[in-house]
């Protein structure tokens, strides 16, 4: 017998816009973002916090959206990969660096990695290469071998470019 709990209303700010949806308590934030809110740039990998594909920024800090429930997010501010490029689709400095350095192949892990470094570079604009590798340890990539990802991030660091345009309140 499958027991369903009543859905709860969840209102949050997604990439600068106030959005609302209904979620059963057990609905993971990943599924809420993808299926209820329709923002499919956030990917689902392992669903137990190991691969990092579903990383988004929750109230200013990068976190696994598979390790949070949608009902916990009422009133939260969430940023996903869709927030990085501008309205005309022009990629930001971090995304451009990924393209230039061939820091992705299939791209499945990329949106999560971009969100981790968006948070990390805001708080640490001038990290060492080792610190960048340490943050990247929270992600799995089966294509690149990681070296190009580290190069791309270090390129942004060395250029002192702002890691992303300001999307407003965080």
């Amino acid at each position: 017998m499958i027991e369903q709990k009543p859905k709860q209303r969840v209102t949050l700010t997604l990439n600068g816009r106030k959005v609302t949806g209904d979620a059963e308590p057990r609905l993971l934030l990943t599924d809420f973002i993808r299926h209820t809110l329709g923002a499919t740039g956030t990917h689902v990998g392992c669903e137990h916090g190991v691969c990092g594909c579903c990383t988004v920024i929750i109230d200013g800090v990068a976190a696994r959206s598979c390790l949070a429930f949608a009902v916990q997010m009422d009133g939260a501010t969430i940023e996903t990969v869709e927030s990085l490029a501008d309205e005309d689709g022009r990629m930001n400095a971090l995304q451009e660096a990924f393209r230039r350095h061939h820091a992705l192949q299939c791209g499945f892990c990329t949106s999560g990695i971009l969100m981790s470094f968006t948070d990390f570079l805001r708080r640490n604009p001038e990290p060492s290469r080792d610190e960048v590798v340490d943050v990247l340890c929270g992600h799995l990539c089966r294509c690149t071998g990681y070296a190009n990802i580290v190069d791309a991030v270090m390129d942004v660091v060395e250029a002192h470019a702002p890691p992303q345009r300001d999307i407003g309140a965080v």
Partner: peptide, 12 residues
Amino acid sequence: MPWVGHFQTRNR
């Protein structure tokens, strides 16, 4: 503590 989980899991 820098060995506890990853940057992303330590955030929560």
